[in-house]
Design a protein around this nucleic acid. Structure first.
Lengths: 140, 140
DNA sequence: GCTAATTAGTTAATATCTTAAGAACAAATA
DNA sequence: TATTTGTTCTTAAGATATTAACTAATTAGC
């Protein structure tokens, strides 16, 4: 019988926990939660996204995203506008304040990302990336 | 500059999400949350654990575990007793009812685990396991 | 022996996750 | 056009995550 610790989902959880521990201290300075930062990072890349697309990119469910966006809006980090084509859709963009904050914080977090990836070999990192990509495409 | 989707922490999150989607429907039948099942699985393996050890094995922080244990105790799935050696420590065990439930549900979930792992090659699975194990040992 | 520093567990506050249900709008169909 | 069906986003309720602070019990230092 398979042992408790011998579990891919558990190891994925722990591994993610370890990787996030590299970034959390920096995010706390701002302060932002890891989900808030993920949303800001996605918006920095795609400039403008519908709520549903944003949720998909960030792997955050819609009900969670609603709250996250409310708080980011409160902090003046994002703004919402209705899609002119379809009144159901909300289009979301970063504010200038958020863009400025992102540009300032991003280099430190990128450096931290390299600190993390540098702790494993390039081969391991490439293999991990490839297998995770496969895993993400599975359907039950 | 690194792309948004090109992120190991994000891929770990998505991969875990995918793997958990194999088990969630079964757990909902009981019903149990994934964290509750994790705690029960750990206790099935170690028989008796202190709260802190249990939290460590399950990758659940103490404040979360307090609530999870309260609910499991409410459901008559676990019982707590004070350590005779150190009155600060709580020792936790499964109830007979939990053990019975575990024995009934475990085969189905094990089968589901194989369904999942069978979707990737044995080589990929072994490589993934090995790299995740390394990753879990990193210190920021 | 006594006090200071540690440790295990809990409580509190805020944020997020998960599922289900609801409101508003849009597209499809009779 | 009126009804139906589907989609987007939000609300609601219960559970968990995260950080800080607190209580009670133990240990370290003197």
């Amino acid at each position: 019988m398979r042992k408790f610790e011998d579990s891919i989902p558990l190891k994925l959880l722990k591994a993610r926990e370890v990787t996030m521990s590299f970034f959390r201290p920096i995010l706390q300075e701002i302060p932002l939660t890891e989900q808030q930062w993920r949303v800001i990072r996605a918006l920095n890349e795609y400039r403008e996204l519908e709520s549903k697309q944003l949720a998909e990119h960030c792997s955050i469910l819609s009900p969670s995203l609603t709250g996250i966006l409310n708080r980011l809006e409160q902090m003046d980090y994002i703004q919402r506008r209705k899609s002119p084509d379809d009144q159901r859709r909300t289009l979301i963009t970063l504010t200038d304040r958020a863009q400025k904050m992102f540009n300032e914080m991003s280099p430190r977090l990128e450096a931290r990302y390299r600190d993390m990836t540098d702790k494993l070999s390039a081969e391991d990192m490439a293999a991990l990336d490839a297998i995770l990509t496969k895993l993400c495409k599975l359907k039950p």
